[in-house]
């Protein structure tokens, strides 16, 4: 358990030992191999009210699957998801409905996540219909209010998604998520498809809305600078697991896990003077495959500081404010005796 939220109140969202495994079969009919892709392999975290937890990691590390599993878009294989202490994992769709209202999602691709045949008004108003929150004139007024809230011109009510730019479409997606007055929004790479200048507009909007409405965010991104800006705490994922979890400023100032260190050192810095001076840790090798089972640390093959124990013995993330799942770098683990 890693209760990094330093208070006694029940966290808004609590994820415990969440696993999402996809079984697969490959090869020919008579010579097939069965296996399992461990997309998410036992992760735990809490998100408090008004807090932003950033999840970073490279493609295939399971960060998007984590978000999808939280709201059951992908059924979790095991583990528990709690909202205000109530477990929602494995609930029926009908029983889940009131909880869906509290947890909303904003997707990466503003082109794919909006129905091209619906007007903006209908898109933003649809959740109000699904959750029977407003009808007729009230619904229209509410939609107009939401459009204003996210910085869309209310005159565009009857336009279609294709008439908007990427940034504006992302605003539509955010307005749709806000329609049901959620407590938390799961943002899956919400700005990575946008140009830099537009990206900054959307980040500012999300932070502004958080101030106004007291929202919590799970903010998933591969861009570490964006996450640094928006998140209060950050979890770094590698091959389906969180390898480091800490307050944002602690993580960026003093990364513990060698993977976090390498990741931070690889982020291009927009300053030629700094870029010329700094030392990059260039990792050798590729991200390992999630269809293989690693008894030890999945990062061991690429790790510059690994010891024998790393390939046989899996380091778990300890429950402390700045935690790393590393036998070498995490004091809490380094002292434990080696056993298989």
């Amino acid at each position: 358990m890693n209760d990094a939220v330093e208070s006694n109140e029940t966290p808004l969202l609590s994820v415990r030992d969440l696993k999402v495994h996809f079984p697969f079969r490959r090869g020919s009919l008579f010579n097939s191999q069965k296996g399992v892709i461990r997309a998410v392999d036992g992760i735990s975290f809490d998100i408090g009210r008004g807090e932003t937890l950033g999840l970073v990691g490279e493609s295939g590390c399971g960060k998007s699957t984590t978000a999808r599993a939280i709201i059951n878009l992908v059924p979790p294989t095991s583990g528990d998801v709690q909202i205000d202490g109530v477990s929602i994992a494995g609930m029926s769709d009908a029983a889940m409905l009131p909880y869906r209202r509290r947890v909303q999602m904003v997707f990466q691709d503003p082109f794919a996540s909006l129905n091209p045949r619906m007007t903006v008004g209908a898109i933003i108003g649809e959740p109000l219909v699904v959750h029977s929150l407003a009808k007729g004139r009230d619904r229209k007024l509410e939609v107009l209010r939401l459009m204003e809230l996210v910085g869309l011109n209310p005159r565009f009510l009857n336009r279609y998604p294709h008439e908007f730019s990427g940034g504006q479409r992302q605003r539509i997606g955010i307005a749709r998520a806000l329609a049901v007055q959620p407590d938390i929004i799961l943002c899956d790479e919400p700005v990575s498809a946008l140009d830099v200048s537009i990206q900054a507009q959307i980040i500012n909007l999300l932070m502004d809305l958080q101030q106004k409405l007291g929202l919590s965010y799970l903010f998933i991104a591969h861009d570490l600078a964006v996450v640094r800006h928006i998140a209060t705490r950050v979890g770094v994922m590698y091959l389906g697991r969180i390898v480091e979890l800490a307050k944002s400023e602690d993580l960026y100032a003093g990364p513990k896990h060698p993977y976090t260190e390498a990741l931070l050192s690889a982020v291009p810095v927009p300053d030629p003077e700094v870029a010329a001076k700094r030392q990059r840790i260039v990792l050798s090798g590729e991200v390992p495959s999630p269809d293989r089972y690693y008894p030890g640390c999945a990062f061991a093959d690429r790790c510059p500081v690994k010891i024998d124990r790393c390939t046989t013995d899996r380091p778990e993330l300890p429950g402390k404010p700045h935690a790393a799942a590393c036998w070498v770098r995490e004091e809490a683990l380094a002292e434990t005796p080696a056993n298989a």
């Binding site: 830099v196 900054a200 507009q201 861009d223 600078a225 800006h229 944002s248 960026y252 927009p270």
Partner: peptide, 16 residues
């Protein structure tokens, strides 16, 4: 408008 690994959370980004 670039967020920066050192940037301050309390200041909005200078979006265009």
């Amino acid at each position: 408008s670039l967020p920066n690994v050192e940037s301050n959370r309390d200041e909005p980004l200078a979006a265009i």
